[in-house]
């Protein structure tokens, strides 16, 4: 996007870091100061995890789960839940808010382009999600004896793609929504069906075949499938991974294309 010629950058700027990195840091600082993102996006799923962990019935093995308990299945669901909250509510609220009150308008007068503004949002939310995911795995493991995913590399790849896919959907929602209110509304409307297909209320394995098929091609359903495979020790199969990658790429390109400063 930017045609900045880095060769002409003075030592002054070099010593102060790149604009993208500065933006990421500023966004992280702001989100920690705001407390809303971390509390709602990380705390809420964590509370659900602790509550579900206290229900004995959920600790029984599931027939189709390959020896996993319902609670075991809920750990990846809640990791997705956390990603979805950040991507579909926190991110659009921040970015649409910036657009509404003129923060983006001011940035538009500087050499910083849309790609870097969006990258900063993406990276800051990525970092929050990463901390949350580590926290979930630790609480589930240390508190309730849930094993780590057997295929850790596979889980990492699946998580990265799922995070990229969801955050890109969030960016696209922000790009297309006219304001903060509509962005929040669209985010919420997307959130519930997407969480349904991830198995938040009914595990995907218990859904009728049609719904299972639909689920496999939603971002959260594909993410859930990849997570489950990683938990059971396989490297996730191509279909869910490609589905996630397609969402990530398609939505990110569209979000940059339709990005509006005002």
């Amino acid at each position: 996007m930017s045609t900045l010629n880095t060769a002409t950058a003075t030592p002054f700027t070099a010593a102060h870091g790149s604009a993208t990195w500065r933006l990421v840091r500023a966004e992280l600082t702001l989100s920690v100061r705001d407390k809303v993102g971390p509390l709602w996006g990380v705390g809420c799923p964590l509370v659900v995890l602790v509550i579900l962990g206290g229900v004995p019935a959920l600790r029984e093995p599931v027939a189709t789960g390959g020896g996993m308990t319902i609670f075991d299945l809920y750990v990846p669901v809640l990791i997705l839940f956390n990603l979805a909250i950040l991507a579909l509510t926190a991110l659009p609220a921040t970015l649409a808010g910036y657009r509404e009150n003129g923060v983006l308008r001011r940035m538009q007068t500087t050499p910083v382009g849309p790609a870097r503004v969006l990258t900063a949002q993406l990276a800051a939310n990525f970092a929050t999600a990463l901390v949350a995911m580590a926290l979930f795995l630790a609480v589930a493991g240390l508190g309730f004896g849930v094993d780590l995913p057997q295929n850790l590399a596979g889980f990492a790849v699946a998580w990265l793609l799922a995070a990229a896919a969801l955050l890109s959907v969030g960016l696209l929602v922000t790009a297309l929504a006219p304001g903060r209110g509509p962005a929040a509304a669209i985010g919420t409307v997307l959130f519930f069906p997407m969480m349904f297909f991830a198995g938040l209320w009914v595990p995907v394995a218990y859904m009728p075949p049609v719904l299972q098929t639909i689920s496999h091609y939603t971002p959260l359903g594909a993410g859930m499938r990849a997570f489950e495979e990683a938990y059971l020790g396989q490297f996730p199969s191509a279909v869910p991974l490609l589905t996630l990658a397609a969402y990530a790429l398609g939505c990110a390109v569209a979000a940059v294309r339709w990005f509006r400063w005002q």
Binding site: T8, T13, H16, R22, T29, P111, V112
Partner: peptide, 19 residues
């Protein structure tokens, strides 16, 4: 943004420019 501090804003915006 409401919670961005004066020095942070200036440092951030100065990083947007090559010189």
């Amino acid at each position: 943004p409401d919670r961005l501090q004066v020095a942070e804003a200036l440092e951030l915006y100065s990083s947007f420019y090559p010189a």
